[in-house]
Design a protein around this nucleic acid. Sequence first.
DNA 1: CATGAATGAGTCTTCATTCAT
DNA 2: GATGAATGAAGACTCATTCAT
Lengths: 214, 214, 214, 214
Amino acid sequence: MSAIAATLKPRKAPIQERSATTVATLHAAAIQVLIKDGLDRCTTTRVAERAGMSVGSLYQYYPNRDALLAAVLEKHLDAVADAVERACHDLEGMPLASLASGLVIGFLRVKLGDPEGSKALYGVAEGRGGGDLAAKMQARIVAAMSALLASAPDARFDDPVMTSAVAFSALAGPVRLLLKGEAPAGFQDDLQDQLIRLLTAYLQSYSVGRGTGR
Amino acid sequence: MSAIAATLKPRKAPIQERSATTVATLHAAAIQVLIKDGLDRCTTTRVAERAGMSVGSLYQYYPNRDALLAAVLEKHLDAVADAVERACHDLEGMPLASLASGLVIGFLRVKLGDPEGSKALYGVAEGRGGGDLAAKMQARIVAAMSALLASAPDARFDDPVMTSAVAFSALAGPVRLLLKGEAPAGFQDDLQDQLIRLLTAYLQSYSVGRGTGR
Amino acid sequence: MSAIAATLKPRKAPIQERSATTVATLHAAAIQVLIKDGLDRCTTTRVAERAGMSVGSLYQYYPNRDALLAAVLEKHLDAVADAVERACHDLEGMPLASLASGLVIGFLRVKLGDPEGSKALYGVAEGRGGGDLAAKMQARIVAAMSALLASAPDARFDDPVMTSAVAFSALAGPVRLLLKGEAPAGFQDDLQDQLIRLLTAYLQSYSVGRGTGR
Amino acid sequence: MSAIAATLKPRKAPIQERSATTVATLHAAAIQVLIKDGLDRCTTTRVAERAGMSVGSLYQYYPNRDALLAAVLEKHLDAVADAVERACHDLEGMPLASLASGLVIGFLRVKLGDPEGSKALYGVAEGRGGGDLAAKMQARIVAAMSALLASAPDARFDDPVMTSAVAFSALAGPVRLLLKGEAPAGFQDDLQDQLIRLLTAYLQSYSVGRGTGR
DNA sequence: CATGAATGAGTCTTCATTCAT
DNA sequence: GATGAATGAAGACTCATTCAT
C-alpha cells in the first residue's frame, strides 16, 4: 500500500449502528451524485446534501474527498472480487467448460447488476488511489482463479497466475466497453455467450491432450 | 458528433509551419505533464509552461483545456486505429491463426510503443469527450476487423461486428492491466503469446468444420 | 423577467441575521468600491476585501458579480421608486402646482441623499440586467404618477402614462447631469426650483380651461 | 481636459486620405460591434476584424482601446452638438414657441437618426473619459442655447445658462428612456409632441409679461 | 456531535498590447 | 506600414476543508 493510501482510510471504523448507517447513506449518495453529475461535479457538499447531512458530518467519517471516493470504489471492487471468489469456490473441480460459463455468469451478474454505478466508478478508478484498489481486487481474483484452474481435472496450466490475469482482464475489457456505452448496437444481447465462448476457447487451449498450445 | 464535442475542436487549423510546431509542442507538453503530474494537475498553465509558452498561446490553438486534452487523446486513438487498420489490410485473406498473431502484434506495438503516454491517456479517456473519441476509434477498428474476418478463408462469422468488438476489447483489457501497473509480475513477458493464444482460440471457435459454436 | 435575469438573483435569501448583515456589508462595500475605483475595477475580490471577507463568502450570497451589482442597483432603484410612490400617495387629490413641487422634492431627496452612490450606480445601470431593473422602476413610478395625475382636480390628462413617463424622465435628465458632474457651476443651487418650474409648466399645460394644449 | 484625457487622443491626425478612410472604417466597425456584442465584448481584435484589418493597424491609429471608444463617442457627441448649434443659429431671434419646436426637432433628428448607435454609446459614455466628453458637449450646447434664449424677443432669462442646461438635459432624459428601451409602449409616437410641449411650457414660464416665475 | 458559513488557494479564461516578420 | 502570434496580468469562480456555534 502506498504512503498516500494510508490517508485514504476512513477516519473511524463504523462500530456503532448509526455510523454504519451513515456510511452506507454516504456511499449511496456518492454513487448517485457520481451517476447524475459526474466525477468532477461530485463535490463533498453535493454528496452530503444528497445524503441529507452536512458537509461537516461527511468529514466526520472521511478525512477527505478522495477517501470517500476510494471507499465507494473499494466497496464495489470488493463486491466484484467476492462474487468471483464465490464462483471460483463453487466451481472447484469442475471441467473447463463449466468454469468458463460459471465465471462469466458470476462476473456479469455483479457488473451488470448496477450498470450505472459500475460505469460511474470507472472514472473514480482512474484517480488517485484507484490503481491500488484495482490492483488489490485483481490480486484477489487472480489468486482465486489460479487455484480454480489448478483444480481443473481436464487441463494443465503451467502459469495459472498469468492465465488468470489474462482471462479476467479479457473479460473485463468487453464489459467496460458495454458499460461505457461505446459498444455497437446489440452488443449486450450476445455478450454473455461470446464471453463464455472466449473464455472457454482460451482455457481449453490448455486442455489435457491438446499439447501446450503453443 | 454531440453538441459539446463541437466546442472541443481546435481553434485554428495548424496550417502554417509555426502553428504546426506550436501544436506539436503543446501535445508533447500535455502528455509529459499528464505523465508527471496526473490528469488533475494537468492545468493549462502547467502545460503552457512545459511547452515553453504562455497560457495565452495555448488558448490561441484550443478553446479550452478539454479541447487540448481531447486533441491529444484523439491523436493517440487515431494512431491505434490506424495501426489496427493497417494490420487488417495486410492480413487480408490470411488464415485465422495469422490474423490473430498479426493483430495482436500490431496492437501491442502501438500501445506499448509509448507505454507512459498510453497509460496517462486512460484517465483522459474517462473525462468529457473521451467516450465519444473512444467510441469513434472502436467503430473504425471494428469495421476494419469485421471486413478482415469476413475475408478469412477458414472460418465463417455470422456476426463479425460482434466478434470484432469482443475480440478487440478482450485484447484491450489485459493491455490496460499492464499499462496501469495492476498486473502481476512477469505479466509483460508472456503477454503477447497469451493474447495470441486468446485471440486464436476465440476466432478458431468459428472455424469451418467446427460448427457454429453456439 | 428575462432568462438571464434569473441568474442574477441572490443565491440565498438573507433570512438569518448573520446573512442579513453579510449581505448589507457586501452592498455597502460594493458601493464604496464603485465610488472609489469605478465599475471596471469593482471586482469581486475587491468588494470582498472591502467588506472584510473572502471572495468565497461573496459567492455564497451571489452567484456572480453581475448578480451582486444588480442587487445593489435594485436596492437603489427600489428606494427611488418607493420614495416617488410615497410622494404620489401623499399628494393624492392636490392641485397641479403642489404635485409638481411635491414630486420634485421627493425625487431630489432620494437621489441627492447619497449623491456619490447614486452617481456610481449610473454605470451599473448600463450593464447587463441594468435595463430590466430600470424599466421595472420606471413602470412602478409611471403607474403611481399616472394615478396621481388622474386624481388632480384641476387638470385632465388624456394619456397619463405618457405624461408621467415624460415628466419623470425629464426630471431624471438634469439630475443625472448634476450627479455625473457634467453640469455648469452653480447648477445644484437652482436645480430644485428649476425642476419645479419645469414640471409645473408641463403639467399645467394640461390645466382645465386651457385646451388640450396641442 | 483631464490628464488622462490626453492619452485618449488619436495617435496621428488623419491627414492622408487613407488614414481618413481607415479611421472612418474603424469608427463604423466599433459601432457595429458595440451594437452587436455590447461594450464588454467590444474588443480591439473584434473591431479590427470587423473593419477588415489587423489589431496592429488599429493601434496605428489609436494608442489604446479607450482612445478608440472615446473617439467614436466624441464623434457622436460632436454631431449632436453640431446639430443643436445649427438649430440654435437658425432659430436666432424667433419667438419661444418656435425655439422649442425647432430645438426638439433638431435634437430628435440626430439622436433618433441612428437609434442603435446612439443607444450603444450610452454605455461608452459611462466609462473612462466619457464624462469629460459629455461635459464638453454639454458646454457647447448650453453656450449655443444660452445665446439663443438671450435673443428671444418674447422672454427674459435671468440665468440662461441654467435654463439651457436644465432644458437640454430635460429633453435628453426621455430620449434616453426611449433609446434604452425602457419606455412604455407607444412612447415614441408621441415623444416629439410631448417634448415640444414640455420645452415650450418651461421656456414660456419666462415669458415677458408673466413675471419672473420664481 | 452536527451544522454550514467562511475561507482562500488554485483554475480557467480573456483580452489589451507589443513586436518580429 | 501591415500583420497576427505571443504575452501575461488580471479577473471570475469553485470547492475541499475548517471551526465557531
